[in-house]
């Protein structure tokens, strides 16, 4: 059985336009605050360290994902990590083509779970998985507690 009518001429199809008129303000959270405040003030990445199983995690959490213990310790891990993977992006998120491709990479830190995804500024011929890269930060007075306080990662 099927419906008794159908529309075969798509120009007869009507539609109604609307939107969901909301915007969002996300708090950084307890662990997020510790991470971004430390980055703003002390030029350092912070990882959470589980006092039960020893797992370190970046971005830090208030709990250990492995054993669910509450985190009591946050440890500095510097600004230098290893390039774990990367990609050349030709279009931005709205589908507009970049003048030259952007390199986006995942940076990991020794002995730490997780990592940071960010822009990578390295000469194309030097770009290599496993290379050491460090975060270049904005001048202190321009930081506002977000991921853009990091300009990019570059070769060290």
């Amino acid at each position: 059985m099927s419906f008794k009518d159908s529309i075969h001429l798509n120009t007869k199809l009507g539609y109604f336009e609307g939107e969901i008129p909301v915007n969002y303000q996300y708090t950084l959270g307890v662990a997020g605050n510790i991470f971004f405040k430390t980055l703003m003030e002390k030029d350092e990445f912070i990882a959470s360290e589980c006092s039960e199983c020893g797992t370190k995690t970046i971005y830090p959490l208030i709990y250990c994902e492995e054993c669910f213990a509450p985190i009591e310790k946050y440890v500095p891990i510097g600004l230098v990590g290893e390039l774990y993977s990367y990609t050349h992006c030709y279009y931005d998120y709205q589908g507009i083509r970049h003048e030259k491709p952007h390199v986006l990479g995942l940076v990991r830190f020794k002995g730490v779970q997780g990592g940071i995804v960010h822009r990578i500024e390295v000469k194309p011929e030097e770009l290599k998985i496993g290379m050491k890269v460090g975060a270049k930060l904005k001048p202190k007075n321009e930081r506002n507690g977000g991921i853009d306080d990091i300009i990019h990662f570059e070769k060290v």
Binding site: S6, L13, E17, G18, I20, P21, V22, Y24, Q25, N33
Partner: peptide, 19 residues
């Protein structure tokens, strides 16, 4: 005063009337 990230999505739709 809290550190926050803002996002204003553009959530626009065209809903078909149907038959």
């Amino acid at each position: 005063k809290a550190l926050k990230i803002s996002w204003k999505p553009k959530l626009q739709y065209a809903w078909d009337n149907g038959i």
